[in-house]
Nucleic acid binder design. Structure first.
Lengths: 239, 239
DNA sequence: TTTTGTGAAATGATTCACAGCC
DNA sequence: GGCTGTGAATCATTTCACAAAA
């Protein structure tokens, strides 16, 4: 047998108070629902009610929140404002985060102009492209700069998040330049696999993948219909 | 104790040859990589190589493919063209699927003009909005119509997929009208939970959620740095 | 009584590791 | 010899169900 693990029985001690990734992905959903409740003037909410307005089960919601701490009151529920602040803290939303965006094509334009970002504490502070035809153009109140200006911009704005909205072929080189400039989180809209060094996080949004997944389910539903039909008119019967 | 389940021991017999949802979500990724390999002239590929170009492990890839059937050759690998056609078949990509898009704002514009859709077998056949200022406008070769024209358009084009790119408040009513018109799959870009009848599938893409998830990881990295620092200058030492 | 917080059970996904086939 | 296909083991997530708190 091969050599045992280098750290023998020390398995659980390394664990930090980690929040499971599946939970992290739902926190923004809870946060949004809580903001909506606050806007409607509610000050407390039960796990049942909050779950209903976010489409998850109440047990799952409670377990998710339990990873952040014990902020509910038994018999009562959660204080909306308090929960908002705890979730915001967990998500690191205490500070406004600067975002740079590379690739000001069709999609880049839309993302630059998307109001939802600023509203949630993200501020697009730089737009970049390599196409000379687009450099200099004014989009959403910013002037598109050449990608060469990226390092200086990241340094002066303290941006830590980069959005890639380039064609697939440009995504990896652009990503490399983002990372070299000091970006440590990347949101990638290009249909390409990005290679990044450890310590850099990448999330990918692929629009045609989403449609293909829906297509799978459409197909499955269609097949199910045919099979159900076959049960009525079993074999060799055609219209 | 309460009454037992109505169907006593008949638990596993109901299972169809289902493909796990996690696998379905990766099939489009494999498909894209296979197309890239085919373009480079390769005719066969091993699970190891295909896995490398998609960022998943080779064992996972093989298990994923095994849910579709046994299409590889031991000692050799997979035939690229054959695998493309099997995955395409599983995803129901044999036919071109018509897509209608509601909400021709910032994001809707970009989605309408996004080339990646047509390229992957999806065809945007109708753009709709309720804003009179936008109705009549020409976008990506289509004239924006009023939402009232939706049912007729869905009927005449056979569209089964609807994309919602409206503000959050409009999403549910728009979704209801899509479903009423015969749409059975919805891709929702609005930050709202959609309620749909059984048989209708929804997928949600939420851009600010993605940024918030990245923010969580940024925050975590920042905290980790501080803690590491604390280990060097333990207590009560400040600059 | 209501509702949280959480062990324990169940389910689902990933990884391991190797028998079987080319 | 190389590589697939797959049981078995591991790990992650969800669900259950209830004791404890307000």
């Amino acid at each position: 047998m091969r050599a045992a693990l280098s750290e023998p029985a020390d398995r659980s001690s390394r664990r930090r108070s980690e929040v499971p990734e599946a939970t992290v992905a739902r926190l923004p959903v809870y946060l949004r629902a809580l903001h909506a409740l606050a806007d409607r003037g509610l000050t407390t909410v039960s796990s049942e009610a909050l779950a209903a307005s976010t489409g998850v089960g109440s047990a799952k919601l409670r377990k998710d929140l339990s990873h952040l701490g014990s902020y509910g009151t038994r018999g009562v529920g959660y204080d909306v404002a308090e929960l908002v602040s705890h979730i915001s803290a967990a998500l690191g939303l205490g500070r406004r985060r600067a975002v740079v965006l590379v690739g000001v094509g069709n999609l880049g334009h839309a993302l630059a102009g998307y109001g939802g970002f600023d509203e949630r504490g993200f501020c697009v502070v730089g737009l970049f492209d390599v196409d000379p035809a687009r450099v200099g153009e004014q989009v959403a109140g910013l002037v598109v700069r050449h990608l060469d200006a990226l390092p200086e911009a990241v340094r002066s704005t303290g941006a830590s998040i980069g959005v890639i909205a380039t064609p697939a072929a440009a995504a990896q080189p652009v990503c490399d330049r983002l990372v070299a400039a000091g970006i440590t989180s990347v949101l990638n809209f290009a249909p390409a696999l990005l290679q990044v060094p450890p310590g850099v996080d990448v999330r990918k949004v692929d629009l045609s993948n989403e449609l293909q997944i829906l297509s799978f389910h459409e197909h499955r539903k269609a097949v199910a219909l045919v099979e159900q039909d076959d049960r009525h008119t079993p074999r060799g019967v055609s219209a």
